[in-house]
Amino acid sequence: MAAIVYFRKISETEEVVEYEFGDDPDDFERRLTMDKASCTSTAQDTQIDYTFLQASRKLTALHAERGMWSERGMSVS
């Protein structure tokens, strides 16, 4: 079974980046906050599930690869 998650940056400060994410790119249901210093993420709804982990891991990988926080993207597994 395939899983897909889309994400889009909604704000960025010197300390954190906030994203909305979900399985529908036109209707994001959830948000996560990424701490820039530690590259750790927090689910704003406190639900740590596969969708959250998939988005968080993809964002961290893209940051490591590009050296910047992505504006938007997706992950398929």
Rank of each mutant, 00 (worst) to 15 (best):
M1E: 15
A2S: 14
A2K: 10
A3W: 08
A3N: 14
A3G: 13
I4R: 10
V5T: 04
V5C: 03
Y6H: 13
Y6I: 08
F7D: 00
R8S: 09
R8W: 00
K9W: 03
K9E: 12
I10N: 06
I10L: 06
S11W: 04
E12V: 11
E12R: 07
T13F: 09
E14V: 10
E14M: 13
E14W: 10
E15S: 14
E15A: 15
V16C: 13
V16R: 07
Y19V: 01
E20T: 07
E20Y: 03
F21W: 00
F21V: 01
G22N: 01
D23R: 11
D24A: 02
P25D: 08
D26Y: 05
D26Q: 07
D27R: 07
D27M: 09
D27E: 14
F28Q: 00
E29K: 10
E29D: 14
E29N: 13
E29C: 11
E29Y: 06
R30G: 05
R31G: 05
R31P: 00
R31Q: 13
L32E: 04
L32Y: 04
T33A: 05
T33C: 07
M34I: 06
M34H: 01
D35R: 06
D35H: 13
D35W: 09
K36M: 08
K36L: 05
K36F: 04
A37L: 11
A37K: 09
A37T: 09
S38E: 15
S38N: 14
C39Y: 06
T40F: 10
S41K: 01
A43E: 02
A43W: 01
D45I: 07
D45M: 10
D45P: 06
D45T: 09
T46C: 07
T46P: 02
Q47R: 11
I48Y: 12
I48L: 14
D49Q: 08
D49V: 05
Y50H: 11
Y50N: 12
Y50I: 10
T51R: 04
T51Q: 09
F52N: 00
L53R: 06
L53P: 03
L53K: 09
Q54M: 13
Q54A: 15
A55G: 02
A55T: 08
A55W: 00
A55K: 00
A55S: 04
R57H: 03
K58D: 11
K58W: 05
L59A: 02
L59T: 02
L59S: 02
L59W: 03
L59H: 01
T60G: 02
A61R: 08
L62F: 11
L62S: 13
H63N: 12
H63W: 07
E65D: 15
M68L: 13
M68V: 12
W69T: 09
S70W: 03
R72F: 07
R72G: 05
R72L: 06
G73Y: 00
G73S: 03
M74C: 05
M74T: 04
S75V: 10
V76R: 11
V76S: 13
S77G: 14
S77D: 14
